[in-house]
């Protein structure tokens, strides 16, 4: 497989891998490093890549595993995740700031979810994969995916309701 073929194959989903990595690792730099690492690993397997039925799902599984390992080793090393790239809604218009803020809540709410729920929500509500694909990517049963997804959505709703009722923003 040539470089150009590989890039052509990877381009449709590399952003998805990156967004998944960022969902888990939060920091942009770390997510970029993780995505790069995964794609390079995929490149090193280019000879056997034809035998995988669904390369996109395979790459997503690799990303998931890589990021979870990363998180685990960080926890073990007692290191704090570095994330300095919170988006700033730096506009003077009050309304826009509010809109950005309320949307940004959701990101913050998602950050507090357990990893599995984060991933399910990311793959379904943002990337719009179907349940079978998500099940393959996360190495879960489709029913387990649905359960986790329902829980994740409800958790987000609950947090949003709290904020809404307190009238923040």
């Amino acid at each position: 497989m040539q470089q150009s073929d590989f890039l052509k194959m990877v381009t449709p989903f590399q952003d998805k891998l990156y967004r998944m990595a960022k969902r888990l690792l939060v920091s942009r730099e770390e997510a970029e490093d993780a995505t790069q690492e995964v794609l390079l690993k995929l490149w090193s397997k280019k000879k056997t890549i034809g035998s995988y039925r669904n390369i996109e799902a395979f790459a997503m599984t690799m990303t998931k595993n890589f990021c979870l390992d990363r998180l685990k080793s960080k926890q073990a090393g007692n290191l704090k995740l570095v994330h300095s790239n919170y988006q700033e809604g730096g506009t003077s218009l009050q309304k826009q700031v509010e809109a950005v803020d309320s949307v940004d809540w959701v990101r913050k709410i998602m950050e507090e979810l357990p990893e599995q729920q984060k991933m399910v929500l990311q793959l379904r509500d943002i990337e719009e994969y179907d349940y079978d694909e998500i099940a393959e990517m996360l190495e879960m049963k489709p029913t387990a995916v649905r359960v986790a997804l329902s829980r994740a959505r409800k958790a987000v709703r609950e947090k949003l309701m709290e904020k809404h009722n307190y009238g923040i923003g």
Binding site: L40, W43, V103, D104, V106
Partner: peptide, 29 residues
């Protein structure tokens, strides 16, 4: 239903971020 707006709003814009880092692929590794 206003409560749900940020949720779906966030999901709708979630696809915009892109991976921009270069891939140092070597032909003869």
């Amino acid at each position: 239903l206003e409560v749900y707006r940020p949720m779906f709003g966030y999901f709708s814009q979630g696809k915009t971020e892109q991976f921009t880092k270069e891939l140092p692929l070597k032909e003869t590794s």
